[in-house]
Design a protein around this nucleic acid. Structure first.
Length: 226
DNA sequence: AGTAGGATAATCT
DNA sequence: GATTATCCTACTG
């Protein structure tokens, strides 16, 4: 086992004792859910691994995306399409899309059914399954440091093994993908807020990006160029 | 440390 | 035909 950066909860397997987040957590407004997802842990079990290998990622950076008419910059801003239709579903579904033709990005849908909103999972710290995560990431990157395993939305998906087939899956009991509260406290003054990365136009001015201050696994913030 | 360029595909003008 | 919720390599200072 290789050395890993400090894991706030103490031991690396603490996610196993966590409490799975249920429908009530995700059915709230996206701007409440997004910051609450910081320091929660995304757990993905690999269906290809007979041993039930797991990658767990403590979330350190997310972005909120609203719905029809109320958020320029959201995929659901205009109308319901085949790509964004999952965003209109109930909270707790996964919305997976392809970014720049190359990478996968994963959102967790929030709010009531028919209300389009979702939280983009942008970065985190791999707290379990680092070897498997590095194996997956090595398919596109020559060598990946511990810090960069899930630093960025495309990287997070690659490390977690999330792709198109997970679109519209849910995160509740019975799903291979879940979000867990492992008891990590997040004091309000640890939460940083900024504009979203790479969002141009009026939507680029909304303070919808939430991250853990001074956490090395947060991705560099790149505001959209004018 | 910072930036340029390229790969690549769904979506929309 | 342009744009995009990106990542990686390779180059400059």
């Amino acid at each position: 086992m290789t050395a890993r950066p400090e894991t706030p909860a103490g031991d690396a397997d603490s996610w196993q004792r966590g409490e799975r987040l249920g429908p009530d957590f995700f059915s709230r407004d996206v701007l409440e859910v997004a910051p609450d997802l910081l320091n929660k842990v995304l757990v993905v079990t690999d269906p290809c691994e007979p041993a039930g290998d797991v990658v767990a990622i403590r979330l350190t950076e997310v972005e909120a995306y609203g719905g029809q008419g109320n958020d320029p910059g959201s995929h659901a801003q205009r109308s319901r399409t085949r790509r964004n239709s999952v965003m209109f579903g109930p909270g707790g579904l996964l919305y997976v899309y392809r970014s720049y033709g190359l990478h996968w990005c994963v959102n967790v849908v929030t709010g009531q059914d028919e209300v389009a909103a979702a939280v983009l999972l942008r970065a985190g710290q791999v707290v379990a399954g680092a070897d498997l995560a590095r194996q997956r990431r090595a398919r596109t990157a020559a060598s990946v440091g511990e810090r960069d395993l899930a630093r960025g939305p495309g990287r997070l998906c690659a490390a977690a093994g999330i792709a198109a087939e997970h679109n519209a899956a849910h995160v509740f009991e019975g799903s291979r993908i879940g979000l867990f509260d492992v008891g990590l406290a997040t004091p309000p003054d640890r939460i940083g807020i900024s504009t979203r990365t790479g969002v141009a136009g009026p939507g680029g001015r909304l303070p919808y990006r939430f991250f853990l201050r001074e956490d090395p696994t947060v991705s560099p913030h790149r505001p959209a160029r004018p």
